[in-house]
Design a protein around this nucleic acid. Structure first.
Lengths: 349, 349
DNA sequence: TATTGATGCTAAATCGATATAATTGTAAAG
DNA sequence: CTTTACAATTATATCGATTTAGCATCAATA
């Protein structure tokens, strides 16, 4: 029992393929197909459960009804959650999702853009690594809907959704200062991505405004987490004067907490902690860790809304939307000024 | 500058499309195309960077070079990690991935199978909800490669990869008993999926073997996590005699730890804890939580290997592979018999 | 000389839809 | 009575590949 084609439908109804196609594409009125025939076709199609082959349709129309989703890594909880929310909305509108992880690799990303292009995906959602400006620009010039998120590429006129990285980092740093901390480190992954630069800038400007010296530690990404934990551990051991640390992202925070545990440091007595990105690990740590929570639902919602808007037939031709969402500082315990301040260097000899 | 088609290539080389196609598909020898012409075509194709349109090819051949990945939810860290590992291998072999989340909804899953079918995906990787036996059977009967994982559907003759749920739960329970715990609860999500039934059976058989009474609490899934935490909290408050708990999955463990924190219980003094699925929250909890770790890399590896094997031209026609992998019990602190056993009911009055 | 058999390549059908141009029939207009 | 106009539908080309069947050419065989 092979799948029915439009030709089968046409034959069985004794009409032409064109007629069936017009009816199915809502062009019946425009093409002056009689109401009676329209309903005859519709009834039959429903009866036999026919639905057009999207591949054939795609070949003819150039539209795939597929959205390409490119994130740094789908295994990252932040991206995985966004992917789920985007998927829900997209599927409801009849769009399917082809995903891939860029691993933040510029060349890989370029190749992947090609792959998606070949498949004529209808729209792109990308959290881009640096260095793909040209390719993304080409997509936009070709009229492709593209929405960036999490980071953007400054020079491009493109829709994007991000958070207010700089003020968020500024405020968190400021709060630590207000709590009485002075030696505040910023620990993050080495990165030239816009969001990381923003967070770094926010931290630095808060520190300098307070007349404090900044202290930045960049972790090199390593697939073996132990290695990264070790570098944080080393850094913390060598900088015993630190009394607080701001982690630039969940991965940094995760490595950081593990290093802190290994060093047996008490939070916040030995070291106060605040991290970007909220997550269960922060809620469940003892003490619970104060975190800068990204509005994940809102991000996904804006991203997919922007894309679907542009995908609609009478799609918006408005200039690029630059959406910046606010974060929420989830105050828990790890940022609190300890009642009795202990100096680690004394404690540990 | 439109994309080149095979016709363009043929014209520019003054040969027929057939010839170009044969060369590109490695059928040159079979079709006795002269070595000289073969290299002329190959050289030109490389020069102009032509690559065949996968959609047109898909229409003709019925092959899409796309794998359909259906998981309970892509936002779940377990599935997200698997998705990443599968993606890496699949892309290397020229396969793209269309994903979707079933939300464990049977009807939704049926619809999604249809969606994937329409797009003629070449193979399916599914962690199925119950109730889709018929549809999956139809896929297999139609000659589609299908690999199930995380759970299976007993009656089906289909490749699957899972872990040894029953022995894992048995051993973990046994270990708690050996530590001296007697009132051990099993807290899990209500579920009739094979993996959950296996874990439950393992727990029950360990308890009965030791002559202990089992005590199972099923959490109803609720999108609002607070609600689920509250039910665990209620259960723990009403069962103060419990001295240990085994959580059936990460989600249960996560809710459970939050409930434990709210109730201000000390682990393991007030309540020993072991959970299925390893995760950072368990490593970072104080004390670190003993967990039954699934071999995520191995699972993904076996799943994608099975599928790629069947996808290969001379694909294996062997009977279904039923792969059962072992878990690793990560011993940390939360399962240890406390030095001085305190009875909660006494403590809290 | 006609037949056979490789050799090397190509024409045309096909996959299943959409889109364009054409066709038929009927009524109104000139 | 022809022309025009419009309504209702259809034939055909097309998207870009793969695949089947077939066509020359030339050497070897009968």
């Amino acid at each position: 029992m092979k799948k029915l084609s439009i030709a089968d439908i046409a034959n069985q109804l004794n009409v032409s393929k064109s007629t069936v196609s017009f009816v199915l594409n809502g062009r019946a009125e425009e093409k002056r197909i009689s109401k009676e025939l329209v309903s005859r076709v519709e009834k039959f199609v429903k009866e036999v459960g026919y639905s057009p082959n999207p591949i054939a349709r795609g070949l003819r129309t150039g539209k795939s009804h597929i959205i390409g989703l490119m994130v740094e890594s789908i295994s990252d909880p932040f991206f995985a959650q966004i992917a789920k929310l985007i998927e829900d909305r997209a599927y409801k509108k009849g769009y399917r999702i082809l995903y891939c992880s860029t691993d933040n690799n510029t060349q890989k990303t370029r190749d992947l853009i090609d792959v998606f292009r070949e498949r004529s995906v209808d729209g792109y959602i990308i959290s881009p690594p640096v260095g793909v400006e040209k390719e993304i620009d080409a997509l936009i010039k070709a009229g492709m809907p593209v929405v960036l998120f999490d980071r953007n590429l400054k020079e491009l006129e493109v829709d994007y959704v991000e958070i207010d990285n700089e003020p968020s980092a500024f405020n968190a740093t400021k709060m630590l200062v207000d709590q009485g901390f002075k030696d505040i480190a910023f620990i993050t992954f080495s990165s030239s991505q816009s969001q990381m630069l923003g967070r770094l800038a926010g931290y630095r400007s808060a520190m300098s405004q307070e007349g404090l010296t900044d202290n930045v530690h960049e972790i090199d990404y390593n697939p073996d987490e132990e290695v990264m934990i070790a570098t944080v551990q080393k850094y913390l051991s060598e900088n015993k004067q630190l009394d607080a640390v701001l982690f630039g992202a969940i991965q940094a925070g995760s490595c950081g907490l593990k290093a802190i545990n290994i060093l047996n440091l008490k939070v916040p007595q030995d070291l106060a902690v605040v991290s970007f990105d909220d997550h269960d690990i922060f809620k469940l740590f003892a003490p619970p860790v104060t975190a800068i929570a990204q509005p994940i639902e809102a991000i996904a919602d804006r991203v997919i809304s922007l894309l679907l808007d542009r995908l609609e037939p009478g799609g918006k031709d408005a200039g690029p939307a630059k959406i910046i969402l606010e974060t929420e500082l989830k105050l828990r315990k790890s940022h609190l000024s300890p009642v009795k301040k202990t100096i680690r260097s004394k404690k540990s000899g």
